[in-house]
């Protein structure tokens, strides 16, 4: 099922404790939001992207697990660097903590800076500007030809409101494992049908509750 050879791309997500890494991944993989328990060690997910298998490693933010980082960073094709938009400290950590950790990843590893919990952000209290985020994302990707990318690898997401989550992953996959327009369409349809079914069933549940 999950053999190393079979995965065509390895994506890892890094970031401080409780910035919402697992929520982001669960929103993408399972299509739903639920409060998450803190991750222990590192967790492994497998995801289909067209004909490709993508291995996604969700990691624990606690410092005590840094011994594992070499293991999951090695040969990573893309890294999501997540921070909490409401907590500037977590943004600083991206530089301070994770820059060195990522040296073990592929040389051409794409680094995407993702601000989470945008739904909690009050614009007047914003401490990290969009421009700062973009700048960091450009600085981190000095080694790759940034012109090939549609825009700076910077996103602001909300796993709760399902905002920009799909876009993060499709951005990565389209860069690392480009699909033809036709393949992409088929993939979208697959995704869509999954989401539709889920929404239907959720509605069904609600209906039942009302009956009772």
């Amino acid at each position: 099922m999950s053999g190393k050879k079979k995965a065509d791309l390895k994506v890892i997500i890094l970031g401080d404790y409780a910035v919402g890494k697992t929520s982001l991944i669960c929103r993408y993989i399972d299509g739903k939001f639920q409060t998450q328990e803190p991750t222990v060690g590192a967790a492994f997910f497998l995801k289909q992207w067209g004909p490709y298998n993508v291995a996604v490693w969700d990691t624990a933010g606690d410092e005590r697990y840094s011994g594992l980082s070499h293991f999951y960073c090695r040969s990573a094709g893309a890294a999501i660097l997540a921070f909490d938009l409401n907590n500037p400290k977590t943004f600083e950590s991206l530089w301070a903590r994770f820059g060195s950790i990522l040296e073990a990843a592929n040389e051409d590893c794409l680094k995407i800076v993702v601000g989470t919990k945008v739904d909690l952000l009050e614009p007047e209290h914003r401490e990290i500007t969009i421009e700062e985020g973009r700048k960091l994302s450009r600085d981190l990707n000095e080694h790759i030809d940034i012109r090939k990318l549609p825009h700076d690898p910077y996103f602001e997401t909300s796993s709760l409101a399902n905002e920009n989550v799909q876009e993060v992953f499709e951005y990565i996959f389209q860069y690392c494992l480009p699909l033809s327009a036709d393949q992409k369409k088929r993939h979208r349809n697959q995704q869509k049908s999954v989401v539709d079914l889920l929404e239907n069933s959720e509605e069904g549940d609600k209906g039942k509750k009302k009956c009772c």
């Binding site: 328990e37 991750t39 594992l68 293991f71």
Partner: peptide
């Protein structure tokens, strides 16, 4: 205790020291 205390193992295969 490790298993008992954390729900996170239920989501996916995990690898932990």
């Amino acid at each position: 205790n490790l298993i008992n205390a954390s729900e996170s193992f239920k989501a996916a295969e995990s690898w932990t020291p």
